[in-house]
Nucleic acid binder design. Structure first.
Lengths: 223, 223
DNA sequence: GATAGTTTCATACAAATGTTTGAAATGCCT
DNA sequence: AGGCATTTCAAACATTTGTATGAAACTATC
């Protein structure tokens, strides 16, 4: 049975360095120096640099998805197979925001790594990302149960916008802070979650789903 | 007076290649081959690879910002110094979405380049991005005039979310298409603009601004 | 305690990349 | 045409990068 010591050290060092400095300018040599292992160890244990990155991302993605599904399941059980749309959206965006926002000095390495992922999006990660769709479908299914009568298209857009707001807040919290001169408190994680959930839920539940967009189109002004 | 021919050819070739293949795997040699100029021409005319990228991005950003401000100004003039919040948001997200969505084969190179920018975000571009804040402040000012009585914090969040939805739609339209199995028509650009504007405006105008978030916090369920 | 399989190590390799150089070519003004 | 500045060019440079190699060290099993 392999001791796994070297492997683990590489993973930890790589995640930390990628989180701090981005994928662009962290080399295998940086990683092995940080991990105090030999250069060849990376290729021995992972095959290639890309597979190392992929393994890091897959591990964290699985954790994130598991946490999301745990919250979703809890919400559905509490509501008797039919969770409120708010609870569903909270299960979707909560884990990401809770992990990636909040006081900088207390964010985990894992969280900072995932922030990097959302900012830089390097090829080996993009390839894996496409498998996320099956996971999202489970949330669509829950939303369908929660909001019967809504067209699927509306549900897709609602989920898309919810993720958009969460992702962009993670990615660009710094810009929001600067723009608002600190008036938007990006450390108030729970407040932000409620904000995102509130807007997304409003988008999903307000107005007649089918006629909303066309009606607005008539009202648009010049050009 | 320099003929500018080489310079222009480099810019055009670089933009096309970056748009098609991303910043990661386009080298100076690829660019000069595409432009039919000598390798040293890039450093002669631009100083470095990063400055070439920066110039491309600055040019397109200026165009985008100009277009946004043009629409904003038109909306304010039409409404007598006070544009509707919808019109303001449309001026903000319209140009980006109009440029970067729609049938793939008819997107301009410039648009596809800006999509790349929003996906990959390479260092020389990140540095420039921070200057965008002054530009966004003009929209905050217009929103303040349009919605007097709203707290600035709400305006910042509204603008942030509007940009988030637009950006993510540009960045990830492919995933949305796959997730919805084509049911979300990402080629209906004007429809998407109205959708984004509608949700963002709703977020800004619904409920009492100050008490909205706290009220929702009380209603949140377990964990 | 010998042996087979696993892991570590120093080093080399090969390829790619941005940048520099100095000479040749070109264009421009008097 | 001559002389000066700008531009182009081929070639070389200096790194940096991920990966491969083969021997040494280690571990566990019989």
């Amino acid at each position: 049975m392999p001791s796994d010591q070297t492997r683990t050290a590489i993973l930890a060092a790589a995640e930390r360095l990628y989180a701090d400095r981005g994928f662009g300018d962290v080399t295998l040599r940086d990683i092995v120096a940080e991990a105090n292992v030999n250069l060849a160890a990376v290729n021995y244990h992972f095959g290639s640099k890309d597979e190392l990155i992929a393994e890091l991302f897959v591990t964290r993605s699985i954790q994130l998805n598991r946490e999301r599904l745990r919250l979703l399941q809890a919400a559905e059980e509490a509501g008797g197979e039919r969770a409120s749309i708010d609870a569903i959206l909270r299960a979707l965006v909560g884990p990401t925001l809770r992990g990636c926002l909040g006081p900088e000095n207390q964010r985990s390495t894992a969280a900072r790594f995932m922030i990097r992922v959302s900012i830089e999006s390097v090829p080996p990660i993009r390839r894996i990302r496409n498998r996320e769709i099956d996971h999202l479908r489970k949330f669509i299914a829950a939303m369908r149960r929660s909001l019967p009568g809504h067209s699927d298209v509306e549900l897709y857009w609602g989920l898309h916008f919810a993720l958009a707001m969460a992702q962009q807040t993670v990615r660009d919290s710094e810009r929001l802070t600067k723009l608002s001169e600190g008036k938007c408190d990006v450390d108030d994680v729970e407040g932000i979650i409620e904000r995102v959930v509130s807007v997304a839920a409003m988008a999903l539940t307000t107005g007649d789903a089918a006629s909303k967009a066309p009606a607005r189109m008539l009202a648009r002004d010049a050009r």
